[in-house]
């Protein structure tokens, strides 16, 4: 009965989660098999079995590619896609703005600046060691969000869609000029830094997988627990306050969670634009706007979206490879226009 699903959470039935998991697994396997060198499916299974059981006789000629290149990379891609998509969905809810996303708001840009600064000045924070890049990216992501929202609020108290997006664009340009400045003085680190501005998950390893997975588990559970509050925010901050949401606290919690996730993703894969814009939007068309469904479905959808985009980037100009950010930005720019037009008609 529809009435009980709405009140009792309105989440998915277990079967629906199973179906989404299955779909994601299917895309995952395809992504592992295909690439500059295509690998037969049975080799994939044999290699995984070999790695898990430790029986060397199961290894095939492709095992090395599969185990140390493809699988960690595709895992990173899937987790990054899920993270960015979840962040997009959460920000679109908090700001009641269907165009909000780490890249359109300039948060990813801010995080990149943090990462670039950390790389070029070789910053090694006490206690964090090599994790300095990740931590700086997170801190810069949060500061960027604070600056962008604070500035938008000063310019336009009602925080309209256009004001936030414009502020985001201006902020992105500002940040990219500083990044260029840093690059000019970076000398031998130019090549590493250029990587951030493109956005690519090539050459990622299992440590990266573990880092994103940890951040995702932590932040996703926090964000998913706030589904009802996000529904309230999506109907306006005044409405959220009226129904009894602790507006300031919930907003701060969510923005911190989003910053951590974006910071971690950017520090590993650079700026991969528009994933958080395209994927929640497409998900919303299927699930409706209720965050009880939207958030979890967005994660699966985002994982699949980025895996397919990454697959495209690896195969479209074979044997060369495009950074995945190029592919997502291409799709995202078109989607942005489409969503902007649609939301303009409605709002």
């Amino acid at each position: 009965m529809p009435s009980s699903t709405v009140i009792r959470g309105g989440g998915f039935r277990p079967a629906a989660y199973g179906a989404m998991l299955l779909g994601t697994a299917f895309v995952f396997i395809i992504s592992v098999c295909l690439g500059s060198v295509s690998v037969p499916l049975r080799d994939v299974f044999a290699s995984v079995a070999a790695a898990l059981s430790g029986e060397k006789q199961l290894l095939t000629g492709h095992s090395d590619i599969i185990l140390s290149v493809r699988i960690p990379r595709v895992l990173c891609v899937a987790l990054t896609g899920a993270s960015l998509s979840l962040c997009g969905a959460a920000m679109q809810g908090i700001l009641r703005n269907p165009l909000a996303d780490g890249s359109t708001l300039g948060v990813s840009g801010g995080a990149s600046l943090g990462a670039v600064l950390a790389i070029s000045f070789g910053s090694r924070l006490p206690f964090f060691g090599g994790g300095g890049v990740v931590v700086t990216a997170i801190v810069f992501a949060f500061m960027s969000l604070a600056v962008i929202l604070g500035l938008s609020h000063k310019l336009d108290r009602s925080l309209s869609t256009n004001t936030i997006i414009l502020t985001g664009i201006v902020y992105s340009m500002f940040v990219s000029s500083i990044i260029s400045l840093v690059i000019a003085f970076a000398g031998d680190k130019v090549k590493t830094i250029t990587f951030w501005t493109m956005g690519s998950l090539a050459n990622t390893d299992y440590l990266n997988v573990l880092t994103i997975l940890t951040a995702l588990l932590l932040c996703a559970s926090l964000i998913l627990m706030r589904s009802r509050e996000l529904n309230a925010f999506a109907l306006g901050e005044d409405n959220a306050r009226s129904v009894g949401v602790n507006v300031k606290r919930v907003k701060l919690e969510l923005l911190i969670a989003v910053s951590i996730l974006i910071g971690v993703c950017v520090s590993i894969g650079g700026t991969i634009g528009f994933v958080g814009l395209v994927s929640p939007h497409m998900t919303r068309m299927l699930t409706g706007p209720n965050h009880k469904r939207l958030l979890s479905a967005s994660m699966f959808f985002g994982a699949c979206f980025l895996m397919l985009a990454d697959l495209l980037s690896r195969t479209i100009v074979r044997p060369m490879e495009l950074p995945v950010g190029v592919v997502t930005s291409f799709i995202g720019a078109v989607a942005f226009v489409f969503i902007f037009k649609k939301s303009g008609r409605v709002g």
Partner: peptide, 26 residues
């Protein structure tokens, strides 16, 4: 204490029942 604001900011296609059910949040 409950409030009805002057303007309603609907951006997403929530169902009427979902909006009303949010009233039970408190």
């Amino acid at each position: 204490l409950g409030f009805l604001s002057q303007r309603h900011e609907v951006t997403y296609p929530f169902k009427v029942r979902e909006v009303v059910a949010l009233g039970r949040y408190a």
